[in-house]
Nucleic acid binder design. Structure first.
Lengths: 188, 188
DNA sequence: ATTGGACATGTCAGTGTTGACATGTCCAAT
DNA sequence: ATTGGACATGTCAACACTGACATGTCCAAT
């Protein structure tokens, strides 16, 4: 019985933190590191300067518990039962009106503002870059399914599977766009 | 010789506007509408309240020209030669460090925090939703390639092709994740 | 012993972004 | 004639976010 309905937007970071802590307890520093991995690459980014204040608020609301300081001032944060329920309630809500901000995709869409030669060059680069990213992801996904002690799929595993399909789609799009550019050149 | 190197981040809206105006002259209102379509869905969003001040700045910098008021105070904006060059220079720059914010994907990644029953239900919904989105996109993409008077591919066409592959990838991911969930259940 | 680097947390100013509020115009349907 | 809705532009306060600055700890390698 929490207040997730008070605000619909702008709560993503909050739930990203709850989700990470649902996997395992962590310090703010470790959470910041997590955002530099697949999570930040595909879903949401945040720097430590944004994470610490939000963590403090979660502690205030009883969704997260903060342990005493350890070595180097490290403070481990643990998800409470209330926090887990808050996260689950959010996930069960309908996923309407979620915002997307992706500068890379924006660039792709604007590519036709370039002359065909430049556009072609960049599309080739995009396809090649995607292909590079694919190899390590294939490696991860084709390995054994990692299951956490609590019997849950790991976030990183889900992310790798998503990234794999994502990059394949982007590469295919770039190849398709190159073909369409050819049609334009033949036509005009 | 412009100043795109002054700031690397936070310039996306600026170039989105230049890109839209590269397709055709438009009023602020029309630009706001454009962000509600495929552009906003896959790449970047902006409301009119953000667009008008940015347009004014672009006019100040000579990248965009603003016509006199028409009916209902409508003011048509046109890209200048300097504006097109600014846009092209940005597109030719290496695409490093672009940020991604996608609440929907974040939700997908956090799904394993739910118990398997709920997670399965949502994954089915995701797959079904993707399938729904695919039909109209297939329609658009399988039609004739639309080429603008200036011999360029239309932004909407590129976006539809991207969206098509994007939704296929998401659907495939959801189906894969369901299969992996089954493995977890059989294992645990 | 010392030093460079990863670990760890924090503040702050400036900018980006959103939702709510505000205002007025044009047109089609009643 | 009037009214509801799309067209059209704008402001403002609150909040989100980033980059830069600041501080200190622990440890491994020299």
């Amino acid at each position: 019985m929490s207040n997730w309905s008070d605000k619909v937007g702008g709560m993503a970071l909050r739930y990203a933190l709850l989700g990470l802590l649902a996997e395992q307890p962590a310090s703010g520093y470790e959470l910041a590191k997590a955002f530099e991995g697949d999570l930040g690459r595909y879903a949401w980014q945040a720097g430590h300067n944004r994470i610490y204040p939000e963590l403090a608020r979660l502690v205030d609301e009883g969704l997260v518990e903060r342990a005493e300081e350890g070595a180097r001032g490290r403070r481990v944060h643990t998800l409470t039962a209330a926090g887990l329920e808050e996260l689950r309630a959010w996930l069960r809500q309908p996923w309407e009106g979620s915002t997307v901000r992706n500068e890379g995709v924006l660039r792709l869409f604007l590519l036709s503002a370039l002359d065909p030669g430049d556009a072609r060059k960049i599309l080739h680069e995009v396809a090649a870059r995607c292909e590079e990213e694919l190899a390590p992801l294939r490696e991860i996904v084709s390995g054994e399914t990692p299951i956490s002690p609590e019997g849950r799929l790991e976030l990183g595993w889900l992310a790798a599977g998503y990234g794999l399909r994502q990059y394949e789609a982007s590469r295919d799009w770039a190849v398709w766009a190159l073909g369409e550019l050819d049609k334009v050149d033949r036509g005009g």
